[in-house]
Nucleic acid binder design. Structure first.
Lengths: 248, 248
DNA sequence: ACAAAAGTGTTAGCCTTACACCCATGA
DNA sequence: TCATGGGTGTAAGGCTAACACTTTTGT
C-alpha cells in the first residue's frame, strides 16, 4: 500500500511523509521585500521544468501551524522574529493538480508512483511575511534550484493557484499597511522619510504629497528621529528615522 | 489497521470517514444572529456530557473548502446565500484533545477505539456567518442534542479552543463591520435606523450619537427609505430602511 | 549664487462630534 | 397639549490635500 519514490537518496518515501507530516495540508508563504523602489517576493525556481512556485512546506505532526510557518521562513531566508501573518486558507478543488510536481520530480530524475502522498489533494494555508530585503539570504528547498527575489510587477507564471495566493496576500498587505503600521517591517533599521513614502506609494499604487505624507507619518509618533544622512548630493540632508514600537 | 466504533448504526466507522473526508482538517463556524438587542451565536449542546461546541464539519474529498462551509451552514440553519467568510485557521498543538469527543460518544452510548480517525489531531478553518435571526431554524448535527442561540455575553464554557475561535471571529466582525458594510446581514429585510444603531452599538461595544449615526449611515447611500413603521407608540413613526447593494 | 531636495506654515475642504431645534404620534 | 422618540440644521474640531515658503547642501 505504501508508495515510494524510485530514487530515495533525496526525496523521502511516502511512508516517511505520512509519519512526519500532517496529511492534506500545506503552507505557502508570500515573502515580501522592498528594494530599488520595487516590491518583491521570493520565488523558487525548478530549472529543468521552468516552473516557479511560492516557498512552501508541510506541518509536522507535533508542530503548531504558526511554528511550521516560522520554520519554513527560517529555512528559506535565515531570518527569525519576522513579521509573519496568516491571511487565508485555499481549498478549491481545482488547486489539486499533481502534474507540476510530477514534472519537477521527473526533471530531477525521480520517478514517483502516481498515488504517492505528495500527489494527494492538498489545501494550503497562506502566510505573508515582511522582511528587510538586505538581511535575507534566500535558500532553495531540497527540490528547487533557485530561491530568488522577483519584482511583483514582473512575475513569471506560477504553479497551481500561486498567482491567486500572491494577489490575496498583496490585497491583505494593502488593507493592513495603514491600520497596523506594518510597513516598517519592509524597511532597513533606519530610513529616510522619502524611502518610506516610496514604499507606501509602491504598495498602495498611488502617489502621496511629500509634505502631507511627512506630517501624517510623524503625527503617528512612532518614529525616532536620528542624525541626518549625508549622501554628498547638493541638497539638504534628510533625517534618518527608526521605528519605535509603542510603549515597548 | 482500521479502527471502528462499536456501534455503527449512527456513527460511520473510521474507514468511511477516511474515504469520504479530507483528513486532519475540520471547519468550525461562528454563526452570528441579532435579537432583542443581543448578539448571539449558535452552539451545539451534548446533553449527557454538558459540553458545548461550535457547529462544525469536515471537508469532502471532492468538495471545496468554501462549499464545505456552505453545506455545513445549510445543514445547521436551513439557510443558503448567507454572508459567510473565512477568518482564520487554528493549528495549535494544544487544540488536539480527543477527550471531549470521547466523552460525547460515550455519553451517546458508543464505544470508540482510541485511535479512531476522529481522535487524530485536527486543524480547523474558522468561518463566520451573519444571518437574519428570524429566518434560521437551528438543527443539531447527528451527535448533538440541541442547536440553540446563546447570548455572546453569557457563553457557557466551550470545547477545546472554541472560545478562542469565537473571540477571533468577533474581533474580525468588529474590524469589518464599518469597512465592508456587513452589518446589514444581521438585520431583517427592513429595519429602522434605531435597530441598526443598536446592532452597531452591541457589536462594537460603544454608544453612538443618534443624530450623527443616522447621518453617517445615510451618507453611505446604501439604504432605500420605505414607509414608516407605526407601532402605536406615542411618538413619531420611524422610517423603515432596506439595504441596497451598490450597483446591483 | 544656484539648483535640488528637505522641512515648515497656512488655508480649504471633508468628516465626525456635539447639541439645538423642529416634527409626528397617541394618550 | 404634553411626553416621547424621530428627523434636520448648525457650529466646532481633527485630519488630509494642496501649495507657498524657508532651509540646507555641494557645486
Amino acid at each position: 500500500m505504501i508508495q515510494t519514490l524510485e530514487a530515495q537518496k533525496l526525496v523521502p518515501n511516502a511512508n516517511d511523509f505520512e509519519n512526519i507530516f500532517m496529511p492534506g495540508l500545506a503552507i505557502d508563504a508570500v515573502i515580501f521585500g522592498f528594494d530599488a523602489n520595487q516590491l518583491k517576493i521570493l520565488l523558487l525556481k525548478y530549472e529543468n521544468t521552468n516552473l516557479y512556485a511560492l516557498p512552501g512546506g508541510f506541518i509536522k505532526k507535533n508542530e503548531s501551524l504558526n511554528n511550521a510557518a516560522k520554520r519554513m521562513l527560517l529555512e528559506r531566508t535565515g531570518l527569525e522574529n519576522i513579521y509573519l501573518e496568516q491571511f487565508y486558507t485555499f481549498g478549491d478543488i481545482e488547486r489539486h493538480d499533481p502534474e507540476p510536481l510530477k514534472t519537477i520530480l521527473k526533471g530531477k530524475g525521480y520517478v514517483a508512483l502516481s498515488d504517492h502522498w505528495l500527489f494527494e489533494r492538498f489545501l494550503t494555508v497562506g502566510y505573508y511575511a515582511l522582511i528587510d530585503y538586505s538581511k535575507a539570504v534566500p535558500i532553495p528547498d531540497f527540490l528547487a534550484d533557485k530561491c530568488e527575489w522577483h519584482d511583483l510587477k514582473k512575475l513569471p507564471t506560477l504553479m497551481l493557484d500561486h498567482t491567486q495566493i500572491v494577489n490575496k496576500a498583496l490585497q491583505t498587505l494593502r488593507a493592513n499597511i495603514d491600520d497596523q503600521l506594518i510597513g516598517f517591517n519592509l524597511m532597513p533599521e533606519t530610513f529616510t522619510m522619502n524611502d518610506l513614502q516610496r514604499l507606501y506609494e509602491t504598495v498602495l499604487g498611488k502617489k502621496f504629497l511629500r509634505t502631507s505624507f511627512q506630517r501624517k507619518i510623524l503625527n503617528l509618533e512612532i518614529l525616532q528621529q536620528n542624525d541626518r544622512k549625508f549622501t554628498g548630493a547638493a541638497n539638504k540632508a534628510p533625517y534618518l528615522y527608526k521605528f519605535i514600537r509603542n510603549g515597548k
